[in-house]
Amino acid sequence: MMSTSDSTFLKKKKKKVRLPPKRGQVKAKMFKRLYKIVVSAFSKAEESHKRSEGEGGGDGRSSASATSPKSSYSTGANGGNS
């Protein structure tokens, strides 16, 4: 006959058996993680893009590209080589 301390010891010693995952679970977990990474990357890029648009103007152009630089070359009839 077993004493109560022996039966308690046997119950504690048993480990939970871990079976391999069911078919398709590994791929499902991998794609789920990949999806989260891609969505996170796109949302960060979108935030960065929106932030840069707010600083440069509403149409996405910076003030430097909206005005052309002054040139020392003359394009009129007075400054041509004739």
Rank of each mutant, 00 (worst) to 15 (best):
P21D: 06
S40A: 13
R33P: 03
K70G: 01
K16G: 03
S68Q: 09
M30R: 06
K50F: 13
K13L: 15
G24W: 07
S3E: 03
E53Y: 14
K22M: 01
K11C: 05
S48F: 15
Y35N: 12
S43C: 00
S43F: 06
V38A: 07
R51V: 04
H49S: 08
K14D: 11
K29V: 03
K12N: 08
N81T: 06
S7I: 14
S74H: 02
R18W: 07
K13M: 14
R18D: 10
G57L: 05
G76I: 04
S52H: 14
K12H: 15
I37H: 14
T67Q: 02
Q25N: 15
K16R: 12
K27H: 13
P20H: 11
D59T: 09
R61C: 12
Q25K: 13
Q25H: 11
G24N: 05
K11R: 12
T8C: 11
A66Q: 09
R51S: 03
A77Y: 13
T67F: 04
V26M: 03
S7G: 05
M30L: 15
A45M: 06
F9L: 13
S52I: 10
A66D: 08
S63C: 01
G79P: 01
A66H: 07
M1E: 10
G58W: 14
L34M: 06
R33N: 09
K27I: 15
T75D: 06
A41K: 10
K12F: 15
S74P: 01
T75G: 08
S71K: 02
K13S: 13
A45W: 14
S74W: 01
P21I: 06
S74M: 03
M1A: 13
P21N: 00
G58D: 10
K27T: 11
S74A: 04
A77D: 10
K29M: 08
R51H: 08
S48W: 10
K50N: 04
G24L: 01
S63F: 14
S7M: 15
E55H: 13
F9D: 06
S65Y: 06
K70C: 01
S71H: 01
E53S: 03
S48C: 09
A64P: 09
N81A: 14
S74E: 05
G58N: 08
G79C: 04
S48M: 03
L34T: 04
G24C: 03
I37E: 06
S71D: 00
V38W: 02
S48P: 04
E53A: 13
M30K: 10
R18P: 04
G57A: 01
G58A: 08
G80Q: 12
I37K: 11
R51I: 07
L10M: 05
A64K: 07
D6S: 12
